[in-house]
Structure formats: structure tokens, C-alpha cells
């Protein structure tokens, strides 16, 4: 059976409309829209350097997007990716510091495991609170972001501070030998590879296993799912664990591939940007990959817009906002164009 073309055609059309709207906006602001688009292309995809720049920025976004996308499939709107990145990065750094003399593969595995576990528990706690206490998960996940950041600052400035880190307090270094390397001869660290693997694996889980099927049923109608005997609570907790583990892994990668330590740079808004990516990808783990790359590209070209066109840094925020709104508005178009589904019907 042929698939419907809608999931491809509508987002692409929405993307073009958003670019058009952004073009009108920056023209009104006095910039040369065509030149801006040319710079954006050059900065995001124009050269091999630009591609690497884009992909390396997409890496954390894929993982934090999963943190919102998976729970959304079961009906939970969680915006706590930022907190899970921070706690995941923090515990991963601690693990790396404790094990620093073990062999790098052991250190990295342990760091990933610990980062994923704490990130997972962090988000699972949110859905447990929702389930057992009826606490709104959107709000509690937001509050926990602030709390995670405060805990990290407390630890980094206090008990866990490496006194050598003078003006930017950080934990001790996990050891140069234990750093996550770059992929082949590129300047893209393995975080990108891990992100793609996680997206594909979770896509398989969500789309091609009974577990994923059960999650979708529970997400569609909790009451019906309960009546049909699905263990809704367990599904919720497991989904949140996986979601948090993805964000925790993003934190671990920030530590292992970029900073080598945990410090306030873990709080770099990847969690919040992941929310956008998840919604635009319509919570489909596979679609997260191209959307994250697109957003990585927007961020990658932002510098060039400042340097070439004197546009403020916020232009990329405006563009992201326009894309998000147009994509959401386009949701309403699904199922309205019968000609896009023609093949499905005849099949």
C-alpha cells in the first residue's frame, strides 16, 4: 500500500511559507532578503565546514527532542528536557571523575549509563507525580528545570568545584583520554551518531513493536486503553524513563565530547529547543532527525546573519517561531486534500 504523501508535502509547503514570511519580515526590517537566504544556505549547508557545523549542533537537539516526543505519544506534555540534560551531565561528569583511571571505553559506558539513568529517573518522577498525585506534568517539569540548574550551581560552586577552575567554576576534568572523539576525519563528535542511533531505535520501538502500539493506544484514549487491559501506568513510566534517558545522554555527551567537566554551560537551552523539534517532527522519532538538522542549520547560519547583514542574534529565534507556528497551523490541513491521498485509496 502506498503511503499518503501528506506527511511529506504539507511540512515542506509549510516550511516554504515560513521562509516567505520570514523574508517579508526581514525585508520590512530593512535587510536584503535574498542575500540573507544566500547567507543562511552558505552558513548551514553551503560548504563541508557548514555541514559539519550544522550536524554538530543537531546532535543534542535530536536527543532532547526525544525527551518531549516520547511522552507526548502517550499524552504527557513534558518540557523538562533542560533539567534532565543538566542532571544527566552532572552525574555523568561525577562518574567520569571517579573512574578517571579506568580504560576509556569503561569510563564512557559508565558515564552514559549513569547519565541516562538519572535523566530517566528525573523525567519518570515527573510522570509518577502526574500519575500518583495528579500534578500537572508540564508545570512540574518546568519547575524541575529551575531546580536542577540550582542544584548544579550549588555543587559546581561548592562541594564539587575544582579549585583550578578559577573564573568559571567547574567540576574536575574527566581526563583527556576519556573524551568522546570525533567521527572519522570530521569535526562532528560521536554525539551525532548516538543521536541518530537513538532516534532510529526509538522509532522502531514506537512504530514496529507491540509496546509502541500500546503507547499510541494509551495516548489516544486512556480510558479505552485501561478498559482493554493495557498497563497504562507502566507504559507511562517506561516511556518517560526512555525520554529522560535520551536527554540525560545529551548531557553526558556535552560533558564527554565538549567540556570534559560539568559546569553552567550544561544549561545551554538544548532542552527548550528540543521541544520545538519534537513538535515540528510531530513526535515521530524518525522525523526528528531531519528537523533537528534543519534547526541545527538555522543556528549554524545565525552567526553569518549577524556578520554579513547586521541582523540581531534574535533573527534565528524569529525564524524558528514562524516555522513552528506555520507548521502547527498546517496541522489542520491533514486529511483535507484528497488528491494527496489518491494513491492510498486506489491501492
Amino acid at each position: 500500500m502506498m503511503r499518503s504523501f501528506e506527511p511529506i508535502v504539507i511540512p515542506i509547503a509549510a516550511l516554504l511559507v515560513s521562509l516567505l514570511m520570514f523574508g517579508i519580515f526581514i525585508t520590512a526590517a530593512g535587510a536584503d532578503a535574498l542575500g540573507v537566504f544566500e547567507s543562511m544556505y552558505r552558513g548551514a549547508f553551503g560548504t563541508w565546514f557548514s555541514w559539519q557545523n550544522t550536524l554538530v549542533r543537531a546532535a543534542p537537539l535530536m536527543l532532547t527532542a526525544l525527551c518531549t516526543a516520547l511522552p507526548a505519544r502517550i499524552g504527557l506534555i513534558i518540557i523538562g528536557g533542560e533539567g534532565a540534560v543538566v542532571v544527566g551531565g552532572m552525574t555523568a561528569a561525577l562518574t567520569g571523575i571517579v573512574l578517571t583511571h579506568a580504560s576509556p571505553i569503561v569510563v564512557l559506558t559508565a558515564m552514559a549509563f549513569m547519565g541516562m539513568t538519572t535523566g530517566g529517573l528525573w523525567i519518570a518522577a515527573i510522570s509518577a507525580l502526574r500519575h500518583y498525585r495528579g500534578v500537572n506534568e508540564t508545570i512540574s517539569s518546568l519547575l524541575l528545570n529551575y531546580i536542577a540548574i540550582a542544584i548544579m550551581n550549588f555543587l559546581v560552586f561548592g562541594p564539587l568545584r575544582d579549585p583550578e577552575t578559577l573564573n568559571k567554576p567547574s567540576t574536575y576534568h574527566i581526563g583527556e583520554a576519556n573524551m568522546l572523539t570525533e567521527m572519522g576525519s570530521t569535526s562532528i563528535h560521536w554525539g551525532f551518531g548516538l543521536g541518530v542511533i537513538a532516534c532510529v531505535a526509538l522509532w522502531v520501538l514506537m512504530r514496529h513493536t507491540p509496546f509502541g502500539f500500546a503507547v499510541d493506544i494509551a495516548g489516544g484514549n486512556v480510558r479505552a486503553a485501561k478498559l482493554s487491559g493495557l498497563p497504562v501506568t507502566r507504559l507511562m513510566i517506561i516511556t518517560s524513563l526512555l525520554a529522560g534517558a535520551a536527554a540525560g545522554l545529551a548531557g553526558m555527551i556535552e560533558v564527554a565530547a565538549v567540556h570534559g567537566r560539568a559546569n553552567s554551560s550544561l544549561n545551554a537551552n538544548y532542552g527548550y529547543e528540543g521541544i520545538l523539534v519534537a513538535f515540528i517532527a510531530r513526535h515521530n522519532p524518525l522525523a526528528i532527525i531531519p528537523v533537528a538538522i534543519l534547526f541545527g542549520g538555522i543556528r549554524a547560519s545565525s552567526g553569518l546573519l549577524q556578520r554579513d547583514h547586521d541582523l540581531p542574534d534574535a533573527s534565528s529565534l524569529v525564524l524558528q517561531g514562524i516555522i513552528f507556528i506555520v507548521i502547527l497551523a498546517s496541522e489542520t490541513l491533514y486529511g483535507r486534500f484528497s488528491w494527496l491521498r489518491a494513491k492510498e485509496k486506489t491501492a
Binding site: 513538535f279 534574535a314 533573527s315 529565534l317 524558528q320 514562524i322 513552528f324 507556528i325
Partner: peptide, 20 residues
């Protein structure tokens, strides 16, 4: 159209426009 998603989108757009 999910109202929470629209909210997040407007949060982003509003902040971006205000900064710009």
C-alpha cells in the same frame, strides 16, 4: 491544533520578536 504547542510557539516568536 494543540493549545500547549501553540503556546510554546508563541512564547518563542514573542521572545524572538521582542529581542529583534
Amino acid at each position: 491544533v494543540n493549545d500547549i504547542a501553540v503556546g510554546i510557539a508563541l512564547m518563542l516568536l514573542g521572545t524572538g520578536l521582542a529581542f529583534f
